[in-house]
Computed example of a mutant assay.
Amino acid sequence: MDESAHPYQHLTPDLVLDAVESCGFEVNGRLFPLNSYENRVYQVGIEDGTPLIAKFYRPERWSREQLLEEHSFVAELEEAEIPVVGAIKLANGGYLADYGGFTFALFPQRGGQAPDITLPDTLFRVGQWIGRIHQVGARSDFQARPTIDPVETIERGHRFVLESGFVPDDLRHPYQSLIRDLLTEIQRNLEEAGPVNSLRLHGDCHLGNILVREERILFVDFDDARQGPAIQDLWLMLSGDSAEQSLEMGELIEGYEQFNDFNPRERFLIEPLRTMRLINQAAWLAWRWDDPTFPMHFPWFGQPRFWSDHILMLREQLANLQQPPVSPPVV
């Protein structure tokens, strides 16, 4: 085995099929890679049965303890009859298996489409389910999974892209100066929010991780589950101008509060969390650049045009941080 190769280069189709068979399933040889960059995910055909989804976790991203916390949380949600897609319990009594140097989990195949938030009550219903998820999430804390920290995440991410040499020389100073200004405004917003409760979250609850089929809502992919404020699972569904976001927030919160209280001070966290996500996405590409999939699919990363556009986007975000937070409409 070539030790210098990226670990996923050793994840061959035969290894994937053999790994699934090692869990007691008879595969039929059909294998379809699904859209995933952080992990590797495949639809695997099962003899005389419905295909399974096999997720092979990126080595060294999460510890085994952190992966087990994710699956235990999702199992807790399933037990509470919340519509989530959890891993299949295997013959070993757990949700994780190991094969060929990889840790993986198997999931039932579930289809559906992203929710259409233009339809009446869609966001209200999504808000209701997130309220239920957070009811369960507040029962205990993650012990191994990280807690969301915008300041620490931004500082770590921007340092890495600078040290890795991705930012062009003529843009390094504007980028560093802008990061300092952003952190100042983020700190001000955090102080405005004051103390907020921290609970177990989905962590990446955008519309692409919610499926709708025959009016049934399913929450999928808890790979980014973390400890943090409730607003993290709500703000990613806001889009459009401030008026549109206000209406969307109103629908979400109205549904959410059917099952859980919402602290309105958490609205001050939306733009800090959005800023964190923008900066962390660029850092994520830099962190993963040794994976051959990334240069292939993101060839524009590291080019001067990307960084000039990125800095422009962050300047717009600085203006957003200086505005009053989005609020539900006054009834």
Rank of each mutant, 00 (worst) to 15 (best):
I253Y: 02
K89M: 07
A87H: 05
H134E: 08
P324H: 15
S239N: 14
G137N: 08
L17Y: 07
R180T: 10
V84S: 03
I210Y: 00
M237Q: 13
F259V: 03
G24E: 04
R40I: 14
W235Y: 13
T122I: 03
P272R: 04
Q176T: 15
D170F: 10
F222T: 04
N280G: 04
D290I: 03
T103N: 07
E254N: 09
G100E: 07
G208T: 11
I210A: 03
A230F: 04
W62G: 08
V326F: 03
L106F: 02
P146T: 06
D116C: 15
R226K: 15
I133N: 00
D149N: 15
A286S: 12
E69Q: 13
L234Q: 08
I311A: 09
A286G: 03
S4Y: 13
P324R: 11
S246D: 13
D224L: 06
P150I: 09
E76H: 09
I88P: 08
T153L: 12
P299Q: 10
I148C: 05
C23G: 05
I133R: 02
F222R: 01
N39R: 08
H173V: 13
K89P: 03
A144T: 10
N209Q: 15
W300T: 01
D204A: 07
C205T: 05
I130D: 02
P13N: 03
N28E: 15
L199P: 00
V20G: 02
Q9K: 11
R305H: 12
L199G: 00
E248N: 05
W289Y: 13
D221M: 09
A19N: 11
A91W: 10
V151P: 08
D309F: 03
M249R: 01
Q128V: 06
N263C: 10
I46D: 02
N320V: 11
D170W: 07
E79D: 14
A80M: 05
P13Y: 06
Q143C: 13
S246M: 14
Q66H: 04
P328R: 13
M249S: 06
L90A: 11
E192Y: 05
I117V: 15
D2C: 13
D261S: 11
G100V: 08
L182D: 00
E163Y: 12
R274P: 00
V151F: 12
R274I: 02
R288M: 06
M296R: 10
K55S: 10
N260G: 02
